[in-house]
């Protein structure tokens, strides 16, 4: 099938230029490798490069899975099905979406395109946000890895599940309850996938949605991964541990650490368990904050849902997650 109107000549020229620019960057890597390959031997730089590539490589399968799921949602799920499956009242739909997060056993990179795909199919934005926050935090893979890392500490596993679910539901309710009354609180921008006219087959919806989500999400993930790798390599754990004794500073520092190192939610429990100097509550904060918000998620969300939304959403989630995890830790641990 061809589109009705061919691209304008000026656009066509620009298109070629960009393709050549990309190819040029890729080809320039060959002489760069010859010239620089041996000089880039600093241990810190090489470690950064390994950690950066590890974060990117590790995210790729989850990102592709998330994008394919988002494509499937766009292709198969009709707005009628969505409205029948969810309670009509968003106040009730929010906890349903939170619990539904159990069903998506992936890292956080997969959740962003899936949430965006759900919103495109008529799921109210606050409900989609709750799913976005809950899925990477409370799915079975995360619960099991937490149980393995904290051997015999059922309270830590329960604490993580309860606090993460609460964070997701509370944020959803904030957006349900406040959004109408406080115009300053921005809702996520849900961009429609456009189709060539009269060509709205399931297959084209699937490819269109997958394509639409994959590249920007990947780009922002890379930007977040660069910063996360730098923090990971440059900040020694001993500096973080120097404040472990004070309970408030411990909580704040581990919340910030979780945001900046952007670990995969299936792996963060092992790192948390190794931070032995910290209180259990501070460790719980680390486990609850990381999956709902970190630097690479913040970058991806800014790309997917708009910068104006992310500027409010990111700090809101950080504060709510830190407070709820501290309270749950104080009660349970």
């Amino acid at each position: 099938m061809t589109t009705a109107s061919p691209p304008a000549p000026s656009r066509g020229g620009g298109a070629d230029l960009q393709v050549w620019l990309v190819l040029g960057v890729l080809l320039a890597a060959v002489p760069a490798q010859r010239l620089l390959g041996d000089r880039l031997e600093g241990a810190a730089f090489q470690t950064w490069a390994t950690v950066f590539l590890a974060i990117v490589v590790q995210s790729i399968p989850f990102l592709v899975l998330g994008v394919l799921l988002s494509g499937l949602i766009s292709a198969l799920l009709s707005e009628r099905v969505v409205s029948r499956a969810l309670p009509r009242n968003p106040v009730l739909a929010v906890p349903v979406a939170g619990i539904a997060g159990i069903g998506l056993p992936t890292c956080e990179c997969a959740a962003v395109p899936v949430a965006s795909g759900l919103a495109r199919r008529g799921v109210p934005a606050p409900v989609a946000l709750t799913f976005l926050l809950a899925a990477p935090a409370i799915n079975p893979a995360v619960i099991i890895s937490t149980a393995v890392a904290f051997q015999g500490r059922t309270d830590m596993v329960v604490g993580r599940f309860v606090a993460s679910l609460l964070v997701a539901v509370v944020i959803g309710w904030i957006y349900v309850g406040v959004a109408g009354r406080v115009p300053a609180l921005r809702l996520p921008r849900i961009s429609e996938v456009r189709h060539a006219h009269g060509n709205d087959t399931r297959w084209s919806r699937f490819v269109g949605a997958a394509w639409h989500d994959l590249l920007p999400a990947g780009g922002f993930l890379v930007i977040g991964g660069m910063v996360a790798a730098a923090v990971n390599v440059l900040v020694p754990v001993s500096i973080v541990e120097s404040v472990a004794g004070q309970w408030l500073a411990g909580i704040v520092v581990l919340a910030a650490f979780a945001f900046l190192v952007a670990l995969c939610s299936e792996a963060d429990a092992f790192v948390a368990a190794s931070l032995t100097a910290f209180s259990d509550t501070a460790k719980l904060v680390f486990l609850v904050v990381g999956p709902v918000m970190d630097i690479k998620l913040a970058a991806m969300e800014a790309g997917q849902f708009g910068r104006g939304f992310a500027v409010q959403f990111v700090p809101l989630v950080l504060v709510v997650a830190t407070v709820i995890a501290s309270v749950v830790g104080w009660v349970l641990l």
């Binding site: 990309v22 960057v25 890729l26 890597a29 590539l53 920007p216 780009g219 922002f220 890379v222 930007i223």
Partner: peptide, 16 residues
């Protein structure tokens, strides 16, 4: 932001 995705490709090749 899509341009950023070139960075891992270049690093994988240049730095190895």
């Amino acid at each position: 932001a899509v341009w950023a995705m070139l960075l891992p490709v270049v690093i994988a090749f240049v730095v190895q």
